[in-house]
Design a binder for these strands. Structure first.
Length: 586
RNA sequence: GCGCCUGUAGCUCAGUUGGAUAGAGUAUCGGUUUCCGAAACCGAGGGUCACAGGUUCAAUUCCUGUCAGGCGCGCCA
């Protein structure tokens, strides 16, 4: 509809230019929008005001020209000038009613479009280190990423959802070491647990699993383990040096194969938990991409060589530095440490190069807002490797600050003090959690009061929307009880009876759905969809309270049933994209 | 100190890429059910869009500065 009107206006402008009533050299990008006030018609166009300056004409004069030359069209009832030069467009009743037919015909496909034209879009989200269970902060990224993916798919992109598994690197060594120490403890060794180790109870569970499967195969005397290890912080030493020393001991005392077994036991346990958690939350993935596979297949080394060959690296104080300042970063970054180990950044450079090589047209990274300082260096690396940096879009999800009542909740994975996503889901349910997470724009900080979310979960707007859906279902159940039938074609033939303000508002809301999907998808703003559904639900509830749908007037009954069937369909479609259920009753 | 995000009703937040009289939810107050589900509806009050300039037909929206809050600034990941 919107596109059709734009085309009409475009044709009119071209005609006026050919007739030399408007200068030929102006190039106008026509934009129309839904009117806020229905006195202003259905759509409003500001083109006359935009053209006023380049055309050196009065905007109202331009608007008059355009209106007088608009071709007759079946959807257009009239066009008016208003205010400083707005062109208000009024649709015909038939054009407004047409949406009901379209919704019911396309059903689950209604609202989908092809503006993505099948272009390949990769969305990487969550990608939390597998060093512990997901917490509620990750939940926001999971909900946001999965709905953004669904929206992109809905508007015609070929979407590939991916989780980058950081299964290499120092943090994972610390995890393996933590597991091993808990295991030794379990076998009776007297261990002073390192202050920088992972302290959560889940580490003990993994240690128990290790003991169950391998008995005492990895047992070493504590005295030997702690021999020559730098002292920990509480003893006046350095906690980082202490934990690194313990990791070295683990590798030395266990040997490569056994260390890997301990390491993988920890990794697999936690990653398995994360995968299950996300699947239950409705965040699906097409691929779980392993960082270790990049390292072991030599892709990281190859990326480093590529940068060296391009003269983008230099050596200083024994380390290799990437010249990211040449691309606007505030300082150069180390890719290979003086001990010969590649940094996490090196893996990430390789990972992004690999993304480009896989041929994605859009590479979308969804990160926590605390990683924002990381963006310039990644973009620098992409440019240094001669890739099109415009294909890469980094979306930041702002922090959800957790409160329990008025008290802030700590969020450290290391200390084991956090609320897990699983706990939240069990408390408030998947539907409420997903809807709540996506309700606010991602660049908005979010106060998440757990007490409020739990105690007042019935006030969550998701129930409001779901109730509208269930209510329509209920009306049809009632119809069946009264031995009535819904005749869809009779309803479609009587849509002209729907002339109240409530019905007109609903028709307009239904027609807006495809526009909302497009807007939400291209701007990565799923909260627009959530707000739209709340608006649609409100219009429906208002309508429900104002009229009796099932009445003695058979034609009117069929028309109204047909309208609310369309409302139900659109709510179901929208909730579906959000990964929220649309219950028949609740 | 530098960089990113944010500042809109008592509270939580929208605001259609610069449009017409700034909106919801919640809270408060008042009303609606012999009738399809009251998890709903109707109404009322509640605003210096943080502040000060600038850009133009038009600024909550864009630019500059100030103030306030959050986050980041490692040879960690």
């Amino acid at each position: 509809m919107k596109a059709h009107l734009i085309t009409l206006l475009q044709q009119t402008l071209t005609t006026l230019q050919q007739q030399q009533q408007l200068p030929a050299d102006i190039d106008a990008n026509i934009n129309i929008e839904r009117s806020k006030d229905k006195a202003h018609g259905d759509f409003a166009c500001n083109i006359a005001m935009v053209l006023a300056k380049p055309a050196k004409m009065n905007p109202r004069q331009i608007a008059t020209l355009i209106i007088d030359n608009l071709p007759a069209d079946s959807v257009l009832a009239k066009a008016e000038i208003a205010g400083p030069g707005f062109i208000n467009l009024f649709l015909t009743e038939a054009a407004k009613q047409q949406v009901v037919n379209e919704v019911l015909t396309k059903a689950g496909q209604f609202g989908l479009s092809n503006i993505g034209a099948g272009k390949k879009a990769q969305v990487e989200f969550v990608s939390a280190n597998p060093t512990g269970p997901l917490h509620v902060g990750h939940g926001r990224g999971a909900a946001y990423g999965s709905v953004v993916s669904s929206l992109l798919k809905a508007v015609g992109f070929d979407v590939h959802r991916e989780y980058y598994v950081n299964d290499a690197g120092r943090q994972m060594d610390i995890l393996a070491t933590s597991v091993w120490l808990r295991y030794l403890e379990l076998l009776g060794e007297n261990i002073t647990f390192p202050s920088n180790g992972y302290r959560g109870d889940y580490i003990r569970d993994i240690a128990a699993e290790l003991e169950q499967n391998h008995n005492s195969a990895f047992l070493r005397p504590a005295a030997e383990v702690f021999a020559d290890v730098p002292t920990d912080e509480p003893q006046g030493g350095d906690k980082e040096a202490h934990i690194d020393g313990l990791t070295e001991q683990a590798k030395k005392l266990l040997g490569k194969v056994d260390y890997r077994t301990v390491f993988d036991t920890g990794l697999n346990a936690i990653l398995g938990d994360i995968r299950e958690d996300l699947a239950q939350f409705g965040a699906e993935y097409d691929e779980w991409f392993s960082e270790r596979s990049l390292v072991e297949s030599g892709v990281v080394d190859k990326a480093i060589e590529t940068l060296k060959a391009a003269d983008m690296l230099y050596q200083q104080a024994g380390a290799w530095w990437f010249k990211s300042t040449e691309f606007g970063d505030e300082k150069d970054r180390v890719v290979v440490r003086d001990n010969g180990q590649a940094t996490y950044f090196a893996s990430d450079i390789a990972y992004h190069l690999h993304k480009y090589q896989r041929g994605f047209d859009h590479i979308i990274d969804i990160w926590g807002a605390d990683h924002h300082g990381y963006i310039p260096r990644v973009k620098a690396a992409v440019q240094a490797m001669q890739q099109d940096v415009d294909k890469l879009k980094v979306l930041l999800v702002q922090f959800a600050v957790l409160y329990r009542g008025s008290e802030k909740v700590g969020m450290s994975t290391r200390s084991g003090e956090f609320v897990t996503l699983r706990e939240l889901r069990e408390e408030v349910g998947n539907d409420a959690a997903r809807f709540f997470y996506v309700l606010r724009s991602a660049d908005q900080h979010m106060d998440f009061d757990l007490e409020l979310a739990k105690s007042q979960s019935n006030d969550n707007p998701v129930y409001y929307v779901q109730y509208a859906h269930a209510r329509v279902c209920s009306v049809f159940r009632q119809l069946a009880e009264r031995k009535g039938d819904w005749d869809q074609s009779a309803g479609l033939n009587n849509l002209q009876l729907l002339n109240t303000d409530h019905e007109q508002a609903l028709l307009t809301m239904l027609a807006r759905y495809p526009e909302i999907l497009e807007l939400a998808a291209v701007n990565y703003t799923p909260h627009l969809l959530a707000h739209y559904l709340m608006d649609l639900a409100r219009d429906f509830h208002t309508y429900y309270n104002a009229y009796q749908f099932i009445s003695d007037d058979l034609s009117m009954t069929q028309a109204r049933l047909t309208l609310i069937a369309a409302v139900r369909q659109v709510i179901a479609n929208g909730l579906g994209l959000m990964g929220v259920s649309a219950p028949q009753s609740m």
